[in-house]
Amino acid sequence: MNLFLDALAWLTDPAHWTGPGGVPTRVLQHLAITFAAVTAAAILALPAGVLIGHTRKGAGLVGAIAGAARAIPTLGLLTLLGLALGIGLKAPLIALIVLAVPSVLAGAYAGVQNVDTAITGAARAIGMNPRQIVFQVEIPLAAPVLIGGLRAATLQVVATATLAAYTADFGLGRYLFSGLKSRDYAEMLAGALLVAALALLLELLFAAGQRLAAKRIAAPAHEKGAAESDSPREKEPV
């Protein structure tokens, strides 16, 4: 247990909370790259996923992408891009986007595809055009699952952003790698605890958001949303 005490001592040392290498800066960096990667992935994958779910064409493609994504070692993607693009933020950012896309795509696709055809049929019958069906019927009803995909992507990216510090001086992963190099276990463990805490916090926030979406948007009449149980969990622990 005194390993944890050492880590706690490291964490409570005011010196570690200021300056460019301080905890607040690192946390902000970590969050910023996560946000940037997930946003980019969402811009790329959400429309595609919704479209595939709406037309129900290309489902096999989504499955194949999700399967392949699971098999690719993230560290491999990161190092290969690192070699190709050099030290810096570009390589990890691209890697993170690539890793986030399958989850977002799968969530959007599964959410829209699972919307009851009777409901979309009824929407068409009362005179909605395809655009209205997508935006006013399918997306709201798909919201919990769609957010589930974003949740999986975010967790994946937060985790992988830790590894990004292997090829760039960025984010909370830095503490882990510098601790590993100098065999400073307290620093390493403190960094690990910070990342874990950040990931858990985001997970809980997303779970709450998903539940809210299920309650307010997809099924306002029901008290309990079933969002959590059927969200796609495509994230890989990295």
Partner: peptide, 24 residues
């Protein structure tokens, strides 16, 4: 289980020795 799964891998690798007393 879902919370455990949310913990990133590299941090977990570093936390485990502290918890279980195995070498890093």
């Amino acid at each position: 289980a879902s919370l455990l799964y949310a913990i990133p891998a590299l941090p977990l690798l570093i936390i485990i020795p502290a918890l279980f007393g195995v070498p890093l």
